[in-house]
Simulated assay, not measured.
Amino acid sequence: MSLADQVRTAVSAVTDPELRRPIGDIDMVRQITVEDGTAHVWIVLTIVGCPAAQRIEQDVRDAAASVAGITDVIVEVGVMTPFERRALTAKLRDGRAARQMPFGPDSLTRVILVTSGKGGVGKSTVTANLAVALAQQGLRVGLVDADVHGFSIPGLLGIPAGTQPTRIDDMMLPPVAHDVKAVSIGMFLREGESVVAWRGPMLHRTVKQFLTDVFFGDLDVLLIDMPPGTGDIAISIGQILPHAEVLVVTTPQPAASDVAIRSGLVARRTGQHVIGVVENMAAYTLPDGTVIDLFGSGGGAEVAKALSAPGDHGSPASEVPLLASIPLSPALRIGGDAGMPVVLDQPEDPAAHAIIELAHTIAHRGRGLAGRSLPMQLS
């Protein structure tokens, strides 16, 4: 290979941080020349003002400089033409029509709704940390903040205020934090705006747009942080994603667990499958060995028992397990306020350990194929 070809190979392997694709595969690399040890590299970005421009340019410079024999690198940066952008979005969609929901029953992506009966049980904190823990296990993870009125995912993941998805024509690329692609209504509010006062139709349209217009790419798992209760959004997502799996979050106290049962029952009525219960804010142990059960005990097990359905007409019972009991943890709370998930910052913390084990259980749990059409053809 010539020196220029070696530089092209190295530069083409650079990954676009938003698209998570090598820039050589998405036609961002143009001409490359080498003269007297100086590599001259031309690349194009998807849009003017691309938020990842500086990182891509630096990664390209570093990749070219890593080739033996290159002593200097000059990077020229341009922008794709409208025609090239249309070709790129078509390539990314892999033949799927624009605004088509990619997470239908035939999708290989596991869609998991994280729900609760009432607010204040730490559902969003659990969801954010679970998403990061799944990503740490090598899975490709997306996260939709469907709690439109009480959005908190951007802050929990440390996504700076004012960060918006990058738009490429009619396609939106979600910001990435800790290897999790996330979208929230909080990313679309105007400066100074912090309240969303919407009713049913607007809520339905917003959630649907999150699932159709946002390009997550190939995902192993899509987590959806649901609003508490069984209102408009729960009904809308039940209609859009009737095949989704459901994880119910509760605290040990009866006031929370009794209501959490309702959210699981509503999900089941739409055809969704309740895969388990997570008990948050469970008892924790002080350094002297004293156990503090501030919110009581046993609520998670009661929810799991109530949601375990007996078999009908000879069919096997559908057991809903208690998948995790997460103890109260100052580190979990501090990490949420700081935008640094505890599973990354303090993985040895008991709460972090419980969430990491939950992620491992979910990652290695099989998904039933009942009701899904498989890509098979009769010969």
Rank of each mutant, 00 (worst) to 15 (best):
M1G: 15
Q6C: 13
S12L: 05
A13L: 01
T15E: 13
T15L: 11
R20H: 07
R30D: 08
V34L: 06
E35F: 01
V41Q: 02
I43Y: 06
V44H: 09
V48E: 15
P51K: 06
A52Y: 09
Q54Y: 00
Q58F: 01
R61S: 12
D62K: 15
V67I: 15
A68L: 12
I70T: 02
I70N: 14
I70K: 11
D72F: 01
V73S: 05
V77E: 07
P82I: 05
R85F: 03
R85L: 07
R93Q: 00
D94L: 11
F103K: 10
L113P: 00
V114M: 03
G117F: 08
V121W: 03
K123I: 06
K123A: 07
N129P: 04
L130C: 05
Q137V: 02
G142Q: 05
L143M: 10
V144D: 03
D145I: 04
A146N: 04
D147G: 05
H149M: 11
G162C: 08
T163R: 01
T163I: 04
P165W: 00
T166R: 01
R167A: 15
L173Q: 03
P174V: 02
A177T: 01
K181N: 06
S194K: 14
P201Y: 05
R205I: 12
T212L: 13
V221S: 03
D225T: 01
P228G: 09
S236K: 10
S236A: 15
I240L: 14
L241T: 08
Q253T: 03
Q253Y: 05
D258C: 12
A260R: 09
L265F: 14
Q272R: 13
G276I: 00
E279M: 04
E279F: 01
N280I: 04
M281W: 02
D288G: 00
T290L: 00
I292L: 06
L294R: 08
G298T: 11
G300D: 13
V303G: 08
A306V: 03
L307M: 09
L307K: 05
G311M: 14
S315Y: 13
P316D: 15
S318I: 14
L322M: 14
A331P: 09
L332W: 07
L332R: 07
L332Y: 03
G335A: 06
G335K: 04
G336V: 04
A338M: 14
A338H: 15
M340P: 00
L344H: 10
Q346P: 06
Q346H: 03
H353N: 07
H353R: 15
A354P: 13
H360F: 12
T361D: 08
H364A: 06
R365D: 07
G366W: 14
L369S: 12
S373D: 12
P375H: 02
M376F: 13
M376P: 00
